[in-house]
Design a protein around this nucleic acid. Structure first.
Lengths: 142, 142
DNA sequence: GTTGACTCTGACATCGTCGTGAGGGTTTAG
DNA sequence: CTAAACCCTCACGACGATGTCAGAGTCAAC
């Protein structure tokens, strides 16, 4: 498939896909015309890339990680010790980030769930606020 | 206290502290000389700012949220409906981000924990990799 | 008063992940 | 064959939170 199709199937912009290639994360074949030709596997690869990017890994690290990923749920080989060290570090970073997110979410929850004192609402020139009880969807913070 | 002291006590750079003020997140008093004068409360405020920033909130949103935060564990007032909508949205975004982080971490864990096939290690010119079993500290996922 | 540490205000630089547009080929359906 | 839709390669811009530097006051201690 060509880049437009891959973009649609992954929800990732064409620009981003070209960027990933530029960074060595994707290596589609090229037609004589220069058009990129992707396979179904690239769809999975792109998904992995997005996940790792979202986790804060840089493209360089991802480039190191990707070759270790074979198949979907299939198994993958680890790599050089250096990479393992990096990965362990990333793992810890991610865990820390999750904790920060949790803290922030609790902070927001506290504010959202806080009873809106009528006076406070008035003091904040938000008369309509009182009784608008909607937010604070009690999603169990697990 | 002055900016240097606040910087030390919070671990946040002076540059960042000035930036927060520029964005309306902090309003220290000013000495006649122009020097900023912070209170102990600002220490807490800065911590809150960092937490929310780390969670991906923008300074503008944080500026809206901060006034709702009174005291440490004390209670806080909610605010305008608009803000509540924003906060709920942020909350969902944070939850989504946490899920992405979890997915990424599992991905990394799978790679880290993967048995290093001796052949793979050799194929990857990483002879030393075999037997380096360390990472993958089984931190209970939550 | 003098030194050294501290602070001030700009303003430009950085990082990574794209958005966007220009200028120009390629493919495909009619 | 032609138009529409697709794709190519530059290349500049943007964001957001900071780093960093310059030039210039201010504070504290001696």
């Amino acid at each position: 498939m060509r880049i437009g199709a891959l973009s649609q199937r992954t929800g990732v912009s064409e620009r981003a896909l070209r960027y990933y290639e530029e960074q060595g994360l994707l290596s589609p074949l090229r037609r004589p015309s220069g058009y990129r030709e992707y396979t179904d596997e690239h769809v999975h690869t792109v998904r992995s890339i997005r996940t790792l990017l979202a986790a804060g890994l840089g493209t360089a690290t991802i480039a190191d990680v990707l070759p270790c990923m074979v198949e979907e749920g299939g198994q993958l080989a680890a790599a050089c010790p250096d990479l393992l060290v990096d990965l362990a570090r990333e793992r810890d970073r991610i865990t820390a980030a999750m904790n920060e997110l949790r803290a922030a979410r609790e902070m927001l929850d506290a504010i959202i769930a806080a009873p809106v004192p009528a006076e406070a609402a008035r003091a904040l020139d938000c008369e309509e606020a009182v009784g608008t009880e909607f937010g604070a969807s009690p999603v169990p913070s697990r």
